[in-house]
Design a binder for these strands. Structure first.
Lengths: 341, 341
DNA sequence: CTGCGTTCCGGAATCGATACCATGTGCGTC
DNA sequence: GACGCACATGGTATCGATTCCGGAACGCAG
């Protein structure tokens, strides 16, 4: 910048004013400065700019694992919106380790990120909550319920409506022994379970017929749960997956055992990822607009960065049930013998 | 930091020395400083640190589209390795727009990234090449051939060996009319085509029997190409996909038309993503270790950051063919009539 | 002609850290 | 006893920008 000033024969402050659009700049000055900038190919140093003006123009994204297609799309939605607003994204993966969540949050704080979007592994890991509560920059939490001392806006999905539609469909088709395989104890998992339970109530059926297997959002858990569920004398007639990874694991088992979806057993998947559309028969799923989740999170964050005093907001995005051939009528009672081992 | 110094009753320089592990620090001093740091919960400002020490401890990743599972895993591999070395990752998506590639590179340069890993949309977009050539920080290029004036280390896959194994398998099963659907004209696309062509030479067969359809790495291109290929009187007996997105598109068409893979037509996919393992029958693929690509890129970059004078290096990672049921014997001549329209 | 306001520009402090240089102290050596 | 050296420490310039403040130049009214 000093070089530009020397070349144009002006002071550094004038260069700064010109480039930042300050009104106290004459046309003659602007011409000379811009010419010098052009000739030298000068580009301001964003680090120094950030230090002085107390705004790094970067935001942190704390994600569980970017190789999960759900997260990848959320991240992409957020990154595009942030870049259009002039912000860069610092991405961290926590690899399903809540301690890494915490360390990543603190690291991004040290980097003076102007805000953060977090998709936490756990809702109850105290050091992580503490780190979030201590944050001085705007925060957007995605798909999680956190204690009130964490001041943050939130982007949530209305898992309830989509899941209830799916469960009602199963009920209409005669299913009562339904299995729900969920992940960690976080908001989407809880909401989905409650949604299915409330459909049992709606139909005046005993909730004890619902089998819930909660673990982690992983293929392995899907595999293990599906095996357990099918390895009993009286397996459920319908199964619901509570994450796309769990869905993939469950489908592996179902495929291996040669079960025909929609006939031997019905299946409702989670998130309309490629697998769901390519599997034969096609998989009915509860879907949500994943790109929109990321975009909304970015927009919320940007609005809070512009107006730090604005009150935290919550945005509830809809989910919707897409019925496909994997969901069929419940077989007559006593189908256990037909299930290959 | 001044607060810490005041509290401990020492100079800022002493605080700095203590925290950076400088040898000229007495035990007494260390105690006092660390105590003050603890009491105040002080954490150094990485922006200021970066400005002064000329190292931002961050690296840029320029990716085409993170929602592609291939990229997601590469990014994840890189992020983990970088974080372990104390670096943060600035992620940008270029959404298949070479101009965005260029702008992202320049942006990351302004942010004073200590290095960059790039997975470019195009190998020939001149402004992008110029931007890369003008870079003063270490650069690692993934899966691309670039002009020599771009000084960079590279991480490449040996697509040739994996693809030749797949093509030989098809030949052994009697296939001669083979279709290869590729993406943009970049290294992996070219290498795969050359590999298949050389297998034709090996078997003394006329290369004109090979049908090549190159376009972009997208589901849509896979769909369009598959339709074209199947809509002729004499369709190929085997098809090879040159990207996971293309594979998904092609499989959609194949599924829609009710074709049985391995019997009606043989199919070799690309990258062993979940779809390949869940599709029935299972899809034979040419695979590579995606996490390792990212990790290797990060390691190369880190080594160049530590030793800026080191010569650029190239790492060739292997690919391997995984035969599965989607690859079967070629039907007898004249099967066109059996293909449903 | 003087006084005052407007416009525009340069100088210097500042953001939060690092690193060089100078200073002060204690100790061994001749 | 004087000198030199090692070790610790404080002061200050610096990284590359922004921003406040003071002042020059000019116009215009009293």
């Amino acid at each position: 910048m000093r070089e530009v000033a020397d070349r144009a024969g002006v002071a550094m402050s004038s260069v700064s004013r010109t480039l930042s659009g300050h009104p106290d700049v004459s046309d003659a000055m602007r011409q000379r400065v811009l010419a010098a900038v052009d000739e030298l190919g000068y580009k301001p140093d964003l680090l120094a700019q950030g230090l002085r003006s107390r705004a790094s123009l970067s935001v942190g994204f704390v994600a569980g694992d970017i190789s999960n297609p759900l997260l990848a799309q959320i991240v992409r939605g957020a990154e595009v919106a942030l870049r259009e607003a002039g912000y860069s994204m610092l991405l961290t993966n926590s690899l399903v380790d809540p301690e890494l969540d915490q360390r990543n949050i603190e690291l991004l704080e040290q980097r003076r990120a102007d805000g953060m979007i977090v998709l936490l592994v756990s809702e109850s890991h105290v050091p992580t909550i503490d780190a979030l509560a201590g944050l001085e920059v705007p925060l957007v939490v995605v798909e999680r319920d956190l204690p009130a001392r964490v001041r943050a806006s939130r982007v949530l999905s209305d898992h309830r409506s989509g899941m209830m539609a799916a469960a009602r469909h199963l009920f209409e088709l005669g299913h009562r022994r339904i299995a729900l395989v969920g992940g960690q104890d976080v908001r989407p998992t809880r909401t989905r379970r409650e949604a299915v339970e409330s459909v049992y109530d709606e139909y005046g059926e005993d909730r004890s017929q619902l089998v819930v297997r909660e673990g982690v959002f992983s293929i392995d858990h899907g595999v293990a749960a599906a095996r357990e569920l099918l390895d009993v004398p009286d397996p459920p007639t319908a199964m619901i997956a509570g994450s796309n990874q769990i869905m993939i694991g469950m489908l592996q088992v179902i495929t291996d055992r040669g079960l025909e979806l929609g006939r031997d057993v019905s299946f409702v998947g989670c998130d309309d990822i490629d697998v769901a559309k390519l599997y034969r028969p096609h998989i009915g799923v509860v879907d949500r607009d994943r790109i929109a989740i990321g975009r909304t999170a970015a927009e919320l964050l940007l609005s809070h960065i512009q107006d730090p005093d604005a009150l935290p907001r919550e945005v509830l995005l809809s989910t919707y049930y897409i019925p496909r051939e994997s969901v069929g009528p419940a077989p007559g009672e006593r189908v256990a013998g037909r299930v290959p081992v």
